[in-house]
């Protein structure tokens, strides 16, 4: 029996095709990004080795750090909005009739492409004919905001469709965790005289802290990689007001044909994502130890 299930040819046949794909299309490109960063290259012609020039430029590039900051800001907003999602999930999990239907409605935007969401929200944000400004005008607001066209608020405006898109996803996950909290614990606390708020804060939330931690990591790392919606909605503009790491990289490479510098930005994105993941995991561990 051992022989059949440890047949080397079969194992190779089953594992190698997928392994080949993942190595050649994910791991090797990941390493090559760092390598291409050492080149001056327009994407089609010859590469010219220029040492660390691109990376030195990257470290001193104000625009790169600005886009990094925007990515981090989106991550912080996402973590803050987790509080809102937690509250809605707590309400949803408090023996509400129809909780399942609410849950199913909440997740619908998550199923749509970021491109469709971006195009829809461009229309919603339209200063003249959009939903939001028409509503504001109808209740008597005179100087309606320009939303995506105003560099001061564009990044915050973009965060609204991001929340709209992901809220349902976070809510179903928190809700699923809350539903699994043992009923006896809640009952015991209730008998001891704890009110619903105390039960939520002192029993339910600590019991699902594992899931919440995963969601914090997901929110931050996901935000650092954020691209589609921003690229379609504003292209990083106006100016560079909504530029994020991925959009900056994409425009340098596929817009300006600076593939060498674009690769350096891509490698910066990789390093920052890795460091962020590692740091958050560390931070959360120490908190637990205390």
């Amino acid at each position: 029996m051992k022989n059949v299930m440890s047949n080397k040819t079969v194992i190779a046949l089953y594992v190698l095709p997928a392994l080949f794909l993942v190595l050649f299309l994910i791991y090797i490109p990941m390493i090559l990004t760092g390598y291409y960063g050492l080149m001056k290259w327009d994407g089609v012609g010859e590469m010219k080795f220029i040492g660390l020039d691109n990376y030195i430029k990257l470290v001193q590039d104000k625009l790169f750090w600005e886009s990094t900051w925007h990515s981090i800001l989106l991550g912080l907003f996402s973590v803050l909005s987790l509080i809102g999602y937690l509250i809605v999930s707590l309400v949803l999990a408090s023996k509400i009739k129809g909780a399942n239907i609410f849950r199913k409605i909440y997740i619908i935007p998550m199923l749509l492409s970021s491109v469709a969401i971006a195009q829809l929200w461009i229309k919603i944000f339209d200063p003249m004919n959009g939903l939001i400004n028409s509503f504001l005008t109808s209740i008597g607001v005179e100087n309606v905001p320009l939303w995506l066209a105003d560099p001061e608020i564009a990044l915050y405006a973009i965060f609204i469709p991001i929340v709209w898109q992901y809220a349902g996803f976070y809510i179903i996950i928190i809700y699923a965790a809350l539903v699994n909290v043992p009923e006896e614990l809640i009952e015991a606390a209730r008998i001891d005289g704890a009110n619903a708020f105390q039960i939520a804060y002192k029993i339910k939330v600590p019991l699902i802290s594992g899931v919440l931690k995963v969601l914090v990591i997901l929110a931050i790392v996901g935000s650092l990689k954020y691209f589609d919606l921003i690229y379609v909605m504003t292209g990083g503009g106006p100016g560079h007001a909504t530029e994020v790491m991925a959009s900056y990289m994409y425009k340098e490479a596929f817009g300006k044909y600076n593939f060498g510098y674009g690769s350096a930005i891509g490698f910066g994105l990789l390093v920052i994502s890795m460091v962020a993941t590692w740091t958050i995991q560390k931070l959360m561990k120490t908190k637990e130890d205390n």
Binding site: M5, I11, I28, M30, L32, A246, A253, L269, S273, T277
Partner: peptide, 27 residues
């Protein structure tokens, strides 16, 4: 199935999930 490197290979597949797509795009 029984083979030596299976833990490592599985880890390779799982870790690939963490790599940002945009860092692989140019290559």
């Amino acid at each position: 199935m029984e083979w030596k490197l299976k833990g490592f290979v599985l880890a390779l597949f799982m870790a690939a999930y963490m790599i940002p797509l945009h860092s692989t795009l140019i290559p």
